[in-house]
């Protein structure tokens, strides 16, 4: 039993290995791009909205609402990153229902890459929001003694982010395989349906946690602004 699509190797040279994770990721990327192009090539701005455009608008509106609720800021700058995280993970998890398709999110390499992206995006958004100094000061709050713990917390939450998604997706596939061996009728179908639900939930959890981590840096900035205003008074 394969634990990860990384082990599916299609092409290998001395420097580059084209495994199943990358290939299925490309496939998902192609489908998402093609689907996006098909939906958005003829957009309606009137009262009549095509069904696919309606679906996309619902998803985008929900994402914007969730981001606004968490960050309490204008959500549009965060939409490409957070939205892509959610859509990519959810689409990978949904496509896992197709026989033969190995979800790239079932690879720890993919989830680790996404977690690294989040780990990098958090300081980038924080620095863009409050400057490099202002962001770095977060690591020595409330006292400089907290610096190691803050750094460890940053790394650990990134690791948790990666492992959580990988573990859930991988376990879902494993459970399906095991049940298929034990009880090949009905139960695998139920578990697959449950897998669809958990796939969406995992995508939501990953995206919302990334938003929370990003918002944490922004929230400090807001608190600082409020604190500075109180001091001025």
């Amino acid at each position: 039993m394969r634990l990860s699509p990384d082990s599916i190797v299609f092409f290998e040279t001395a420097f580059i290995t084209l495994n199943g994770t990358i290939l299925f990721t490309w496939l998902v990327m192609a489908l998402l791009t093609l689907g996006s192009w098909l939906v958005t090539r003829r957009l309606s701005t009137g009262s009549h909205v095509p069904r696919w455009q309606n679906l996309i608008e619902i998803i985008v509106t929900l994402l914007l609402g969730q981001i606004r609720d968490v960050t309490r800021q204008e959500p549009r700058p965060f939409l490409p990153f957070i939205g892509t995280l959610f859509i990519f993970i959810a689409f990978c998890n949904l496509l896992s229902i197709i026989p033969g398709f190995q979800a790239p999110t079932g690879s720890l390499s993919t989830t680790a890459g996404l977690a690294v992206c989040v780990m990098v995006a958090v300081p980038l958004y924080g620095i863009r929001d409050s400057g490099l100094g202002g962001y770095l000061k977060n690591y020595i709050r409330p006292t400089p003694m907290m610096l190691p713990f803050n750094v460890i917390g940053e790394i650990s939450r990134t690791l948790a982010l990666a492992v959580r998604l990988f573990g859930n997706v991988m376990s879902g596939g494993m459970i399906g395989g095991i049940l298929l061996a034990i009880a090949p009728l009905i139960f695998p179908v139920i578990m697959q349906m449950l897998g669809l639900l958990t796939g969406i939930v995992q995508a939501y959890i990953f995206a919302i946690l990334a938003t929370v981590y990003i918002a944490a840096g922004l929230t400090v900035h807001e608190e600082q602004a409020v604190h500075a205003e109180n001091c001025d008074m």
Binding site: L3, T33, T84, G113
Partner: peptide, 29 residues
Amino acid sequence: LIDWPTVIFQIINFLILIALLKRFLYGPI
């Protein structure tokens, strides 16, 4: 379980996907 070249590939793929979706999805929508 972690294949670091794949991690790097996936990071690049994810960044490309962000750019593609921003161009073909978020922007027009």
